[in-house]
Amino acid sequence: MSPRGVAITGVRERLYEAAERVLAREGPGALTSRAVTTEAGCAKGLLHNHFADLDDFVAQLVLHRFRLLAEQAATLSTRAGEGSVTENLNAALLTLLDAPGPTLAALALVRPGASARIREAWQRGAPGLNAIETSVTTYLEAEQRLARVPATADCATLALAVVGTAHHLVMTAWPGGPAPHERLRHVITALIAGKHREGAGGDT
């Protein structure tokens, strides 16, 4: 436990990491303010010193994770011309399905107050699926200029299809259920390979 009056550095990140461990171990129903602070090894009131309430904490946790995913997706365009288009997309988008992604989605769904705050933040421009979709479009357009994606391909539509699939799988997965990673991999492969067949060539 942290002594009273002693500052903890990186407290939000510490609480986020603790919450993700609780979710991975016990599921959404176990997430309470006390469970998070106990897991983090800090004073019980610390969470409420930094967040308005548990809904605010959950919303900020989800937004934090999406911001990290959006930052990672933004690096996709630096891989243009390297490896294969399919594997580059797989590497970027499969992280959406990694734990605790589906569990966080389930948690947000059962907490309407958190869901409302997340939507409001996205409407104000916080990074979310739209940012990831934009990064995927930018990457595909870069590969298109290198002739590794057919000139006839609609990169924005392809990006919407793969990101939308990832979102669907995140929202319909459940802790302990079948891993959705292979389903997303197959969709990405089918979409990109299909466009290459239409374009008669290119490196998938």
Rank of each mutant, 00 (worst) to 15 (best):
C155P: 10
A190M: 12
R185L: 04
R119C: 00
R79N: 10
D53Q: 02
R65F: 00
T134M: 08
E133Q: 11
H167A: 06
P150C: 03
Q72A: 08
A35H: 04
A43L: 02
D56C: 07
V6E: 14
F51Y: 15
M171D: 14
E20C: 01
T75V: 13
V6Q: 10
H48E: 09
L61T: 13
P175R: 15
Q72G: 04
F51P: 05
A114Y: 08
G199H: 11
D53I: 10
L15D: 05
F51R: 01
H181T: 07
R148C: 01
P150R: 01
E13N: 14
R14L: 07
R79A: 10
R111P: 08
H50F: 12
R34S: 14
N90Y: 08
A166D: 09
G5C: 01
P127W: 05
S115N: 06
G81F: 05
Q72R: 13
A153D: 02
R117M: 04
Q123C: 05
L160H: 15
G164H: 10
S33Y: 06
I188N: 07
A179G: 03
A121M: 02
I8G: 00
M171Q: 14
G101Y: 14
L191N: 10
G101I: 12
G202W: 02
L191I: 13
A74V: 12
P102W: 05
N49V: 15
R21L: 14
A179R: 04
R4N: 04
N130V: 12
A166P: 03
N90T: 12
A91R: 12
E87G: 11
G10I: 00
P175Q: 13
T86A: 05
A91Q: 12
A190N: 12
V11R: 08
L160P: 00
R34E: 15
E87K: 15
A99H: 13
A166H: 09
W122Q: 13
S135Y: 03
T38F: 04
A126Y: 05
R119N: 07
P180M: 05
L104S: 03
G101F: 08
A161P: 00
R119E: 14
A35S: 15
K44R: 07
T137M: 05
Q60W: 07
L158E: 00
A35V: 07
E82N: 03
K44E: 10
T152L: 02
N90I: 11
Q60L: 13
N88M: 02
E198M: 14
A200C: 08
I8S: 04
Y16M: 06
V162I: 15
V11L: 13
D56F: 12
A179H: 09
T165F: 00
I188Y: 09
H196F: 00
E143P: 12
A179N: 15
H196V: 02
T138A: 03
R79Y: 08
G177V: 00
L158S: 05
R25P: 03
A114W: 03
L146Q: 04
A108K: 03
A91T: 14
R185C: 06
H186T: 11
R197A: 14
L146N: 07
A131C: 06
G81R: 08
H196M: 02
L15F: 01
A190I: 11
L109S: 15
L169C: 11
P3V: 04
V136A: 05
